[in-house]
Simulated scan of single mutants.
Amino acid sequence: MTDDGVLNAYSARAAEYTSVLGSIEDTHELDRMCIERWAKQISGPVLDAGCGPGHWTDFLHKRGVNISGIDLVPEFIESARSRFPEASFRVSSVRTLDLADGSVGGVLGWYSLIHLAPTELPQVLVEFRRVLSPQGHLLVGFFEGEADEPLDHAITTAYYWSVHRMSGLLQDAGFEVLDIETRHDHGSRPHAAIAAIARSGTSGPKHISPVS
């Protein structure tokens, strides 16, 4: 889906989204443990890519992480700056990060990639790899299911990804998968998280897997 489509859909419901899902108390305890554990490995600045209303950025900032949050939706960034004034936020797209090559030690992509069409995701992963230092850390969270299948998302079109497919795309983009977590809580869609590091000696993918 285009940036404009996602922007318009979330802008129209940003206040509602923030009130329902914009607090760290609204998140799963296991997700908090996963993200905090991941962040402890990182040296250097961290980017929360697609930070939404900013609660995960604030969560890690309060734990001493040098982190900034970006999001496509100005209403989210305005709310995040107001609610979490000690953290850093700016409007930006995950498709083209306004960062130098190798300039960050970690990228958090927590459910921020779900609206990318299957043909678009590989290049965004390459962009994440570009800004990460060698051995820099990436953590992605997503809905686990049949790869490339759309799902009935409350805001706008989103997609499932299988662990196998996401792992392959990460490897193609220049990452080494370190850890995989999956969970299926009653009444919610299956969840997956993959932690990976940027492979040394490569600044991008050897190839991009075809969409299947």
Rank of each mutant, 00 (worst) to 15 (best):
G22R: 04
C51H: 06
R90T: 15
T96V: 13
R83Q: 11
I77N: 00
P74H: 01
K40H: 01
Q41V: 07
S82P: 06
R63Y: 11
M33K: 12
A49G: 07
G54N: 00
R81V: 02
I35Q: 00
T96H: 14
D31C: 07
P74M: 02
C34K: 05
R63N: 12
F89K: 00
R63W: 09
C34I: 10
E86D: 15
C51R: 05
D31H: 12
D58P: 05
E36K: 09
I42C: 08
F84Q: 08
M33I: 13
G54Q: 04
I77W: 01
F89D: 07
T96Q: 15
R63K: 15
A49R: 02
L99F: 09
G44E: 03
V20Y: 00
R90E: 15
V94M: 13
S82A: 14
S23Q: 11
T96G: 10
P74G: 00
Q41S: 14
S19G: 09
I24T: 08
S88L: 09
I67H: 02
G44H: 00
E75L: 02
V73G: 05
G52P: 04
S88W: 10
S19Y: 07
R37T: 13
S23A: 11
S23F: 02
E36T: 13
G22Y: 00
E75A: 14
P45K: 12
I42A: 06
E78I: 12
I42E: 06
H28E: 05
G44S: 05
A87S: 15
E25V: 09
L72D: 03
S79P: 01
P45I: 02
P45C: 06
N66E: 15
H61P: 02
K62W: 07
G22W: 00
F84I: 07
F59Q: 03
S88Q: 13
L72F: 04
F84E: 08
A80Q: 04
W38A: 13
L47Q: 11
S68Y: 02
S79Y: 15
R81H: 07
E75R: 05
R90L: 13
D58A: 00
L60V: 07
R37A: 13
A39M: 06
F59A: 02
V65Q: 04
K62C: 12
L47F: 12
R63M: 07
S43W: 10
S79L: 11
I24V: 12
